[in-house]
Write a protein that binds this DNA or RNA. Structure first.
Length: 465
RNA sequence: GGCGAGAUAGCAAAAUGGUUAUGCAGCGGAUUGCAAAUCCGCCUAUCCCAGUUCGAUUCUGGGUCUCGCCUCCA
């Protein structure tokens, strides 16, 4: 039985879908004005695991991950670059897909873009206005009236009084309450035509929060099972989504309606114990990291920590993850696995399943993989190897040929496979002539070039250190 | 200031009211021409102070420290 830590309840709860056997899941994706960094990689991988585990558990999952392709930062960046919004977002959507694919992240069932759902957003804003929860501000914006929505703050555990006491909330002239947020931004003179949509409130564009409410409802219904995202979205973004969606539903159900049953939030990636973020400038893009590390190492690094814990990023930690993943692939190299479905009856699989059912405890599930690898090494059993590969496959790991992972690819100026094999042949000749000094010299030379040789009963193999 | 999360061995990171986490690193042995890999064994833990308990790293209270949210952010 799957248990999920529900932010709304601040506790682990048994997962019960609204419709037996089916799950509707929405995750807040990227705002596409730049390359994804490691923090984004974590959201992608974490919810990929949620998606995979739900499917492995037999659910038919409808996974929606949105793309924010219109907002202030995008408009600003497009202007700086002297390119259209469309060209900018198209480039970074393609880049995001490249990065996600490299990390072994499955494509969601739907990837709605904000600009494709403006009519749905306008309908929802109109409904909020009809329900007395939205008002036209003097400057032409349409705002959500936070005070009119009972229960505002239930997700983040904040009361309006607490929030108001916070000195960091800036007072805006056009809002009735400093905490009110924008549903519809009126168009500015200098803005390009492609960021202006017609509406009954005049030309303008949607506020940030409304897109997720509108797209979630459109694709998954007004009430669905799971909504996820980074911990920083808990407030205000997700709090505001609840206010919008539940506020818009008031007329239909006479109050008491629920937008989402389970809210899941992943922890941050830190650098030197500080949150990795654009504003702090302490971020590494996924593609930067992939210059130096295998994408599967990055994925594995993310899965070795629980999704709600902070994850400190550093080269040393990635080196550590690489060493650990090498152990798993080495086991599969010694005992090649045949394709086979997971046998859930085995002890390691049982431990793995219990771990994943306990709020997606991937570190514990990975520990089960290592115990299985130990068994593979001891028994050299094809069945055990098949079980290791299929179980790891549930996490999107260990699906490549071991040699491909272990040997990697030659870096610039490094030895290519032909050069390595020529050296190995020369060393074998020296060994056969009992010229161990020469054999060791060659091995040392290769080692200095980052190539580790391993003499086995089946011959000499190599891997990159 | 308000609200919340966390402090586990050299590093990373799970779990648990009493019984081996796991990986990397280190040490000893087996194996090897020597290595590497692998196997066997070992080593190093539960922030501090009280309380509950036969027994607490685990529960309760207090303290210290760290981090996050309260503004765009995955």
């Amino acid at each position: 039985m799957l248990k999920i830590y529900n932010t709304l309840a601040r506790d682990k709860q048994e997962f019960v879908p609204m419709v037996t056997g089916r799950v509707g899941m929405y995750v807040c994706g990227m705002t596409v004005y730049d390359y994804c960094h490691i923090g984004h990689a974590r959201v992608l991988v974490v919810f990929d695991i949620v998606y995979r585990w739900l499917k492995a558990s037999g659910y038919e999952v409808n996974y929606v991950r949105n793309i924010t392709d219109i907002d202030d930062k995008i408009i600003k960046r497009a202007a700086e670059n002297g390119e259209s919004i469309h060209d900018l977002t198209a480039r970074f959507i393609a880049a995001m897909h490249e990065d996600a694919d490299a990390l072994g992240v499955l494509r969601p069932d739907h990837e709605p873009r904000a600009t494709q759902f403006v009519p749905e957003m306008l309908d929802m804003i109109a409904q909020l206005e009809a329900n007395g929860l939205a008002y036209r501000a003097p400057d032409g914006d349409v705002n959500f009236a936070v005070r009119k929505f009972p229960g505002y703050g239930k997700l983040s555990g904040k009361s309006l009084e607490d929030l108001r006491a916070g000195e960091r909330v800036e007072v805006a002239d056009n809002k009735n309450d400093p905490l009110d947020f924008v549903l519809w931004k009126h168009a500015k003179e200098q803005e390009a035509g492609e960021v202006k949509w017609d509406s009954r409130w005049g030309k303008g564009r949607p506020g940030w929060h409304i897109e997720c409410s509108a797209m979630g409802s459109k694709l998954l219904g007004n009430h669905f099972d799971i909504h996820g995202g980074g911990a920083d979205l808990q407030f205000p973004h997700h709090e505001n989504e609840i206010a919008q969606s539940e506020g818009a539903m008031l007329h239909e159900q006479g109050g008491g309606c629920t937008f989402v049953n389970y809210w899941i939030h992943n922890g941050f990636v830190n650098v030197d114990k500080e949150k990795m973020s654009k504003s702090l400038g302490n971020f590494f893009t996924i593609r930067d990291v992939l210059q130096k590390y295998d994408a599967e190492v990055l994925r594995f690094f993310i899965l070795r920590a629980h999704y709600r814990s902070p994850l400190n990023y550093s080269d040393a930690h990635l080196d550590d993850a690489k060493g650990a993943l090498t152990r798993l692939y080495t086991a599969l190299k010694s005992a090649p696995a045949v394709a086979q479905a997971v046998d859930w009856g085995g002890p390691h699989a049982a431990r793995f399943r219990a771990a994943m059912d306990d709020d997606f405890n991937t570190p514990e599930a990975v520990a089960a993989l290592f115990e299985l690898a130990n068994e593979v090494n001891r028994s050299q059993s094809a069945e055990a190897a098949a079980q290791l590969k299929s179980l790891a496959g549930v996490l999107g790991l260990l699906q490549r040929e071991p040699a491909e992972f272990l040997q990697g690819s030659a870096g610039a100026g490094g030895l290519d496979d032909a050069g390595i094999n020529a050296q190995i042949e020369a060393r074998i000749a020296a060994k056969n002539a009992k010229n161990y000094a020469e054999a060791d010299r060659i091995r040392k030379e290769l080692l200095d070039a980052g190539i580790v040789l391993e003499d086995t009963p089946q011959g000499t193999t190599w891997r990159r250190a």
